[in-house]
Design a protein around this nucleic acid. Structure first.
Lengths: 208, 208
DNA sequence: AGCAATAATTGCAGAGACTGCAAAAATGCA
DNA sequence: TGCATTTTTGCAGTCTCTGCAATTATTGCT
């Protein structure tokens, strides 16, 4: 794990500004609702001009959701799925998703508040799904690696199977997250993780 | 099947106008791209004022995607999943989806063109997923009915299992549709249906 | 046919999201 | 310090979408 390669003032400021915008966005939307929050208000609170807002985010929704550093996500996925010790695909996929989002959910108020907003506003949910679409195909690619590594015979269409498998796990995790938020976001992350796996298993049994 | 309950001129015109807007939207977007098509252009071609456009659709994307009559969908779902002869849940769900969308895809150029647009433009895809979200919970409710009817033991969380099962099947169908479109949208619908079921099965085997 | 109730269409004014462009400010580096 | 590179900002403009009130069309009734 390479440590921060000595960011200059310029980059540190950029990162800080981005975080300030995300925070302002989540706070104002929480207080005023999705339509009540305008880009002007968010920019105001983040101490930037409205024009600068759009240098950082493509849309209001993106600022609320934040944007993943895709390089980082890529690394987490490769480490998680491809390098999993288990032979169980469900465990590999779900645990990887929690490696990406678990630590993210871990401490900060910002992330938890954001998850709650996503549950509350369908528009945000659909934007998030949109964001995750590319992430899903990255994950599916890693799943294909995983399948190749496993001793069992390959399915006929590894790419497609991987995509569907990911979709199934994503649905389970989504429900686990929803329950976790509904219960006050206080339970620990591990229980959410186990819950997601349990739900997937139950579904597989039922479908077969 | 009750036949049309004698629609008056008013309703017939409304239906016709709606179709004219949907058609204009799909045609112009196909020709000019998603951003190249404006509401003004679409309204122009559909022979209505831009203001009227928004009496029919909430957004440009909605007009392109069209909107399902949710009552009709509800009936199809109940008939399909709840009234399925099979004991196989996958078959029940997938065949229901094709009862809803199969006939829709059947002949008209509009529907096929629309599916192609959805493949092409991620923004449309995410909006469609958004539209389908409520449809998914309707479907999940029907799946719960189905599970109750079956002799096998109920899973612990029927609602959640149903939701995940639907998500899995939706992913399979989505891939089957994508392949179908990619192959020129010429193959018959049944092959697409069988393909979706096959993909689901393959995934279940792999996951377990 | 004529008339009143109801519904659909439209224009208008305006808010808000977002973009391109070019000037101004901040930062990095020699 | 002075020059090159980034970042921020203002401005003007386009487009989506909404509320409101006037106009027009449809319907049911007499």
């Amino acid at each position: 794990m390479p440590d921060t390669p000595a960011l200059g003032l310029r980059d540190r400021k950029r990162i800080e500004t981005r975080l300030r915008i995300e925070t302002a966005a989540v706070e104002i939307v929480t207080a005023e609702g999705l339509d009540g929050a305008t880009v002007d208000m968010i920019s105001d609170r983040a101490d930037i001009s409205p024009r600068t807002f759009f240098n950082y985010f493509e849309s209001k929704e993106d600022a609320i959701l934040g944007t993943q550093d895709m390089g980082e996500v890529q690394r987490a996925i490769d480490a998680g799925v491809a390098g999993a010790e288990t032979d169980d695909l469900v465990v590999a996929i779900v645990s990887t998703m929690f490696h990406i989002f678990g630590p993210m959910a871990a401490r900060t108020q910002l992330k938890t508040q954001r998850m709650a907003l996503v549950q509350e506003h369908p528009r945000l949910l659909s934007r998030q799904i949109h964001q995750f679409t590319q992430l899903n195909s990255t994950m599916a690619a890693a799943v294909v690696q995983f399948l190749n590594k496993r001793e069992t015979t390959l399915p006929r269409d590894p790419e497609h199977v991987a995509e569907i498998a990911v979709a199934t796990c994503v649905a389970s995790v989504r429900i686990a997250v929803k329950e976790w938020i509904a219960a006050g976001a206080t339970a620990d992350i591990d229980s959410m993780y186990l819950r997601a796996i349990g739900l997937t298993r139950e579904t597989l049994n039922t479908l077969q």
